[in-house]
Design a protein around this nucleic acid. Structure first.
Length: 282
DNA sequence: TGTAACAGGTACGGACCTTG
DNA sequence: CAAGGTCCGTACCTGTTACA
């Protein structure tokens, strides 16, 4: 059995003694090593052959000769990251049921998936790893930015960088919850958190016709309506006999495409000139 | 087979305006 | 205070899947 293990160790160069940690007499494996192992398993295995998370865990256990059942969540994170970082031409469909599930990050808040994979992908030398503190604080991570050629220029500096934004296959808007708290778990029943920068306060684009009225290329919808009403009052565009009616001037006619409209219909007509801004359009 | 966890769907709240 | 209309984040509910 030992010979087989040694042979296997020789075949698997990623198994490095540098990554093994002796903790309270037990041989443990670092997260970096697990990340490497996951990648190796995925690379060596036929995607169609690996049908479950347990399959990967078992293969990894076989490679490392350790019980990794307690690391299943972390391994799942790594699989998720690898699949997104290295999309395959025919990715296994829901093999791991880990299509960007932000709660996994909550399940292992002490792990920064970004950290684990970044350290791995950048071939951090073992002597650079801090085994005493395998979980560096986020500030430490920011002090070691990736090389310039790997940085994403589209990332605005003003954006808080708690987690790298993964754009691959992220079509689902609700999945963009990497920095969004998980209300299902954290928010107790009855504590509704309304308002904030999103939702109604979300900044929307303004059509060129409407820009002539509100004066800004992008405003929250509520602000657009407010500006529109300011414009209407400023130019006395309300019907004196029925202030609900709005008499369109040239600028408003371009927007509403009518000479006269109702204030209740105004919002409906306004919607045509309010453009949803893509988050990545900056 | 039962339980737990997750994913997807649905409904609500809120700003803005004026009038009855 | 309700009406009318817009949008979307959030909370809640239900169905599905996985594991023991």
């Amino acid at each position: 059995e030992r010979e087989r293990e040694s042979e296997r160790a020789e075949r698997e160069p990623f198994v490095s003694p540098f990554f093994l940690v002796i903790y309270e007499g037990n041989v443990m494996v670092s997260d970096q090593e697990i990340a490497k192992g996951v990648e190796a398993v995925l690379r060596q295995s036929d995607p169609n052959a690996v049908t479950s998370l347990n399959g990967v865990v078992q293969q990894l256990e076989a490679k490392l000769g350790l019980d990794l059942s307690h690391k299943a969540g972390f391994i799942r994170d790594q699989i998720n990251l690898l699949l997104r970082s290295h999309p395959q031409p025919h990715p296994p469909k829901d093999h791991f049921a880990i299509q960007h599930q932000p709660q996994f990050q909550n399940s292992h808040p002490q792990f920064s998936p970004h950290f684990a994979l970044q350290n791995h992908l950048h071939h951090q030398r073992p002597e650079e790893l801090n085994f005493r503190s395998p979980l560096p604080p986020p500030q430490q991570l920011q002090t070691q930015p990736p090389p310039l050629h790997l940085q994403q220029p589209s990332q605005p500096q003003a954006q808080p960088p708690p987690v790298i934004k993964v754009e691959a296959n992220d079509q689902n808007a609700t999945s963009n919850a990497s920095e969004m708290p998980k209300p299902k778990e954290s928010a107790p029943a009855g504590t509704k958190r309304r308002g904030g920068p999103g939702g109604l306060n979300k900044v929307c684009g303004v059509s060129t016709e409407l820009q002539a009225i509100v004066g800004e290329p992008a405003l929250p919808r509520t602000e657009i309506v407010k500006q529109l009403w300011a414009y209407i009052r400023k130019n006395n565009l309300q019907d004196p006999s029925n202030k609900r009616k709005i008499i369109c001037d040239d600028a408003l006619r371009l927007v509403f495409e009518t000479d006269c409209t109702d204030m209740f219909k105004m919002n409906k007509l306004l919607a045509k000139h309010i453009i949803t801004l893509e988050p990545t359009s900056m």
